[in-house]
């Protein structure tokens, strides 16, 4: 007979610890799991994700909704929304704390801003496959853009704690200073990204408008760094999350430099658990996706086979 809950995914109730804004665009939501949920999320890896049931959340008072979202926030929401982790802390056997950072961007994330401490949320997870870092690598380059930062901050902390032998560099980009999802960079006198620098990660920052760090794209900054510094390509690994054009450029750069690269992709998902087939990712046919029609490309599912993919298998 088939066993239920064989790999510890599930739908769990989480309690909100806090839900606080980071600057004008982001919120950090901290959730506490107990019981089976605590055990399941204690095993979750950076790059995996969870899904939050948002259709039971109320809409904020119209004056509390950012002006540019007031009109679109009027529609109802139905489906869960996927979020990657920024931090997971196992407090004890019966308590795991999971934090996410979300961008307030539409009808569902506007509703999430109303969450308060003690509120209960229905959460599905942990879902998908996270980053995988094999022992042959001694240098990990992290590359993130905008709302793609949280899973990269998560993996940075994970590496610091679990792979002390590895040198870690981070290249972080955003549209502007305010679009960097860090508490430290929201301050007027911010000098760098303390969340990463304080754990010993050498960090390079770019903003499109030059309002923080270097002006320009993060992939160009990385390209410049790669030409100025000698690295052993086959001992180096790039882990990345961000907008697809950034990941596409990164993929080209990585191929040129011969560096293994994993990208965490984003897709619109109806279910997040491999049922609806809406989050397809076109990949080379040899990487055997969900279907194989003897064509050169095929589809994998972002939710189940990803969201982390090898950059070489993705058809950009």
């Amino acid at each position: 007979m088939c066993e239920n809950h064989k790999d510890n995914k599930g739908v769990f109730l989480a309690q909100v610890r806090y839900n606080e804004p980071i600057g004008d665009y982001y919120y950090r939501l901290s959730l506490e799991f107990s019981g089976k949920g605590a055990a399941s999320f204690a095993k979750a890896k950076p790059g995996q994700f969870l899904e939050i049931k948002v259709n039971t959340l109320s809409t904020p008072a119209i004056s509390d909704i950012p002006e540019h979202l007031r009109d679109t926030s009027r529609r109802n929401v139905l489906l869960r929304r996927p979020f990657s982790f920024v931090d997971i802390q196992t407090v004890d056997e019966n308590k795991t704390v999971v934090d996410i950072i979300y961008l307030v961007t539409g009808a569902s994330t506007v509703r999430m801003t109303t969450l308060s401490p003690q509120d209960e949320l229905s959460v599905t997870g942990p879902l998908g496959n996270g980053f995988s870092i094999d022992n042959s690598k001694d240098c990990v380059i992290l590359v993130a853009g905008g709302v793609g930062v949280p899973p990269i901050e998560h993996v940075a902390n994970w590496l610091v704690q679990n792979r002390k032998d590895v040198k870690i560099l981070a290249f972080i980009g955003a549209r502007s200073k305010a679009h960097l999802p860090f508490a430290s960079t929201q301050r007027a006198d911010a000098k760098g990204i303390e969340e990463l620098e304080s754990i010993g990660v050498e960090t390079f920052v770019t903003t499109d408008d030059g309002s923080f760090g270097d002006s320009g794209f993060v992939t160009d900054r990385l390209s410049k760094w790669l030409s100025a510094n000698k690295i052993v390509a086959d001992k180096t690994l790039i882990l990345s999350c961000g907008p697809e054009p950034m990941l596409k450029n990164l993929s080209k750069l990585a191929e040129k430099s011969n560096i293994d690269t994993q990208v965490s992709l984003e897709r619109i998902m109806a279910c997040g658990i491999g049922l609806c087939q809406s989050c397809a990712v076109e990949v080379n046919a040899e990487s055997k996706g969900q279907t194989n029609n003897n064509t050169e490309t095929t589809y994998k599912l972002c939710c189940k086979d990803g969201p982390v993919f090898n950059s070489k298998e993705v058809i950009w």
């Binding site: 139905l78 489906l79 619109i268 087939q277 809406s278 064509t295 095929t298």
Partner: peptide, 22 residues
């Protein structure tokens, strides 16, 4: 025969529902 399905986007949420073209 296996079918790859349609190009993306394949789903969009609507008020109280969704449309799909998988």
């Amino acid at each position: 025969k296996p079918r790859m399905g349609n190009k993306l986007p394949r789903v969009a949420e609507t008020s109280c529902g969704m449309i799909n073209a998988i």
